[in-house]
């Protein structure tokens, strides 16, 4: 397979396969959560849970001070990683073109050197996160193969994207192809792993926030 054939394959059939698995898998997992549902809570609510639920969806992004003090590295690296990841995904112009072509939506991008710097910082944050996972006793204890797999499939698009942008390692077509393939791997792995939290975090926070909220506590 020549670099061009490879690029054509990842932009063509492989992309379709990855998106199909991703869409199918994510939809299955979200819908089955909804179908499972929950019983009506018969206890008399102190107040309606809707507003607190929505507040928790957003508010839970801000760690409480105690947690921050106890694991600042986890919080800071996690923040940098998440913000960095979404900045690179959503605001790099070639990526915006991708969203535009698939979703028909587009928005302004950020200067490329900025994205480049963010990528480096994000990769660095991910390395810190991995080291932390390997060294922190709790994280080491909790971590399974899936955690390391998710780390890897998330890192690869960042790393290959960086290499492709800087035209390093392989001819651009090959490197771009590898980058796109790494994203496809991410999409394929997504519905089968904890990466699902990208979607279910909103459900989880909602359920938590509304359950606490109807008891009168903003969680």
């Amino acid at each position: 397979m020549t670099p061009v054939e490879f690029l054509a394959w990842v932009r063509g059939p492989m992309f379709q396969i990855a998106v199909a698995i991703f869409a199918l898998g994510v939809a299955i997992r979200i819908v089955e959560i909804f179908v499972l549902g929950r019983k009506q809570d018969l206890s008399e609510p102190r107040r309606d849970g809707v507003v607190p639920g929505i507040k928790t969806i957003f508010g839970r992004s801000i760690p409480d001070t105690g947690t921050f003090k106890r694991s600042p590295l986890n919080v800071v690296a996690g923040y940098i990683f998440h913000i960095g990841l979404f900045t690179t995904i959503l605001f790099f112009v070639p990526h915006i073109e991708l969203f535009h072509s698939v979703l028909g939506l587009q928005w302004p991008g950020l200067p490329t050197p900025f994205i480049d710097a963010v990528t480096v910082v994000t990769i660095f944050a991910m390395v810190v996160i991995l080291i932390n996972r390997l060294r922190n006793p709790v994280l080491k204890f909790l971590s399974t193969f899936e955690d390391y797999l998710c780390w890897l499939v998330t890192l690869l698009p960042l790393l290959t994207g960086y290499l492709a942008f800087h035209r390093m390692l392989f001819p651009y077509q090959t490197m771009l192809g590898i980058h796109i393939l790494s994203v496809e791997i991410l999409l394929i792995v997504f519905p089968f792993t904890k990466l699902m939290h990208f979607f279910t975090v909103f459900l989880a926070r909602w359920y938590n926030g509304s359950a606490f909220g109807r008891r009168g506590v903003q969680s």
Binding site: A8, F15, Q16, A23, A27, E97, L98
Partner: peptide, 21 residues
């Protein structure tokens, strides 16, 4: 653009979501 897939991914996405649902 070079960064975009060559096939009709929108359709795949929609069909995938519907079938998945």
């Amino acid at each position: 653009p070079l960064s975009t897939p060559t096939g009709d991914v929108t359709r795949t996405l929609v069909y995938g979501v519907v079938a998945g649902a």
